[in-house]
């Protein structure tokens, strides 16, 4: 394996030094019979070292399928049909995860890239103590003794601020609260010191006060360990709290990517703008006399991935639509410093 890794990769030059992961024109389809559900339909996104990229989208946007494609954990009949997923390993070599053999992928999962999910209960094995599960993870990737692994597991629980870590090691997942389980999941994910953490809606199932704890913890861990995070969520409020950079997904495509301040200050895609207008805002949505004003929802529904409109997929719901949008799909073009938009008319925004 060392020999494989030390061989100079032709891809290394293609990825800027500060980029950990870059998906390029990624297409993931679910093929049933003659129909293909284009869940991911040309996704391009970039995660920089030590930063958090939030991927935000509604249901059916393809955000979760994108993360599963990166981990190569797609369930049948999902398949990456086109595109690259360039990943910079800790030793500096760059690999394309989209085509990497499963055997090498297995060495990357957990050790290079780890993942946490929305519902920690289903990702933890109910039959083993949390200590056993963290120890197993460590020993799978590193040749350490049981004793040493247990020490490390305890340290991991302490790292994620679980009180009475030694006692918790011997508890089962069901003996813990939702917030504690998500901490355990994070400890498990970080136990092999991955360079990239993929978090798929990690706080969605949690209460507000617990969500704040977990977000706080993730921010602190990132600062201390320097890992990169790909944070998948539907909640723009959470995005504003955790992200450095944001990619907005709609119907299988990234429609906008920008630094977080730029995105919220001046969204350069009509979908992003519409989404922000959907969230109630007490200052905006109250008249001077305190009367409630109506919200400005996006009309219509998200299109089916089985039957995407030609051209821009947002065109049927877009207030800026012009004839061109319905015939031709816009590309992801620069719309400001570090700001990309998939809209012909982004200058109007």
């Amino acid at each position: 394996m060392a020999a494989v890794l030390s061989a100079p990769s032709p891809l290394t030059a293609t990825l800027p030094e500060d980029v950990v992961l870059r998906a390029e024109d990624l297409h993931t389809h679910f093929i049933v019979g003659e129909r293909a559900a284009k869940s991911v339909d040309g996704v391009t996104l970039t995660v920089r070292r030590g930063e958090t990229l939030a991927v935000v989208g509604e249901s059916g946007s393809g955000k979760s399928v994108t993360s599963l494609s990166i981990m190569r954990l797609l369930a049948h009949p999902g398949r990456i049909v086109r595109g690259k997923i360039l990943y910079r390993m800790r030793d500096g070599t760059v690999v394309d995860l989209a085509t990497l053999p499963e055997k090498r992928m297995r060495a990357i999962r957990g050790k290079e890239i780890a993942m946490i999910f929305q519902e920690p209960m289903t990702s933890l094995n109910p039959l083993y103590t949390v200590g056993d599960q963290i120890m197993e993870m460590i020993r799978l990737h590193e040749p350490v003794s049981r004793h040493e692994a247990r020490q490390r597991a305890r340290q991991m629980l302490e790292l994620v601020e679980i009180p009475a870590a030694e006692k918790r090691l011997d508890q089962y997942p069901h003996e813990m609260s939702g917030g504690m389980r998500q901490r355990v999941m994070i400890a498990l994910a970080l136990s092999c010191n991955p360079a990239l953490l993929i978090a798929d809606e990690p706080t969605t199932a949690l209460d507000v006060t617990i969500q704040a704890q977990i977000l706080d913890l993730m921010r602190r861990l990132q600062r201390d360990i320097g890992m990169s995070i790909l944070f998948i969520t539907h909640n723009l409020g959470v995005v504003a709290e955790i992200a450095h950079e944001v990619a907005v997904m709609y119907a299988g495509r990234v429609v906008e990517q920008a630094p977080v301040e730029a995105l919220f200050a001046r969204p350069r895609h009509p979908y992003t703008k519409g989404l922000l207008a959907c969230i109630p805002n007490p200052e905006r949505d109250r008249a001077a006399d305190g009367a409630r004003l109506m919200l400005n929802p996006i009309p219509g529904n998200v299109p089916s991935v089985l039957n995407l409109p030609p051209g821009c997929t947002y065109a049927p719901r877009c207030p800026l639509v012009e004839p061109r949008c319905e015939g031709e799909a816009p590309g992801l073009v620069p719309a400001g410093p570090g700001h990309l938009s998939r809209c012909f008319r982004h200058e109007l925004l």
Binding site: V208, T209, Q211, A212, L215, N235, L236, G237, V238, V239, A240, E241, A243, V260, E261, F264, A265, L276, I279
Partner: peptide, 14 residues
Amino acid sequence: KALLSTAPIPDPTV
């Protein structure tokens, strides 16, 4: 107070 202060607001400048 805690509840209101931790509710995520979609504005990174706040």
